[in-house]
Design a protein around this nucleic acid. Structure first.
Lengths: 131, 131
DNA sequence: CATAAGGCTTCCAGTCACGGGAAGGTCAAG
DNA sequence: CTTGACCTTCCCGTGACTGGAAGCCTTATG
């Protein structure tokens, strides 16, 4: 199948699929006219990549997961390690965002939000480290 | 003061300060030798920017906040609106991450993590949409 | 005066994972 | 023969910097 069909099947934009080829995640065949030609295995891998990316795995993590997926002698521990590392990243990001959210929502609550210029949000941002 | 000193005072890397000048967030003077010359106002603005960036505001949001900060006739409602929009962004990102975390941690729990190849994490990623 | 160290300058390239769009080849239908 | 959809490659832009090269300025030392 051509790139348009595999794009529709996998839900990935054609641009993304070309990019994945460029960085060596997949290697579609070429038809006589130069068009990329995908088979079910390619579509399957692309769907795999789409789901892994959807869970926030980086491209390099996806590459490793795909290699493990194709390795029948893999150890599930290797997969688990990658996933656990990614989970830790996610939790770290969430903690960072939670800290921002807490500070911000407190400041927002304190701000009158009217026509007057006095604003605890700006006051906090302008504050010297001292206080 | 030179860029090194203001960098140390504000905690921002010199590279970042040059970048902020390039995009028009600050406009330091120039000494006769061509060096950037910062006064306390510049340092104050940079510190403001550092704190706003630390709360995750984008550069354009920082630009707007800085303009409001310098506008004595501002309405606190304008500040509050920007902050509330950013808070909503943060909460959306957190929700996305929470969904990833939930799926991932469930899969990780189900994975034996040993030498055997069977792995529910890979199985899930490889799954057809049908199931 | 020469030299070395450290700070400053500009400019260019890279990051991550694509997306937009131009210029042009290919294919099926009318 | 033309239209229109699809495909190709190539290059630029994103956000907010970061790293590094090449070279000028200043200060300290011999």
């Amino acid at each position: 199948m051509n790139i348009g069909e595999v794009a529709e099947r996998t839900g990935l934009p054609a641009k993304t699929i070309r990019y994945y080829e460029e960085i060596g995640l997949i290697t579609p065949h070429r038809s006589a006219n130069g068009y990329r030609s995908f088979d079910d295995t390619h579509a399957h891998k692309l769907a795999f990549l789409g789901r892994a990316r959807g869970l926030g795995f980086s491209i390099e993590e996806c590459r490793a997961l795909l290699a493990l997926y194709e390795d029948r002698a893999r150890a599930s521990a290797d997969v688990k390690r990658i996933a656990a590392g990614h989970l830790a990243d996610i939790e770290a990001k969430m903690a960072e965002l939670a800290a921002m959210r807490d500070t911000l929502s407190e400041l927002i609550d304190q701000c009158a939000g009217d026509h007057r210029p006095d604003c605890p949000i700006l006051a906090d941002l302008a504050e010297d480290g001292g206080g």
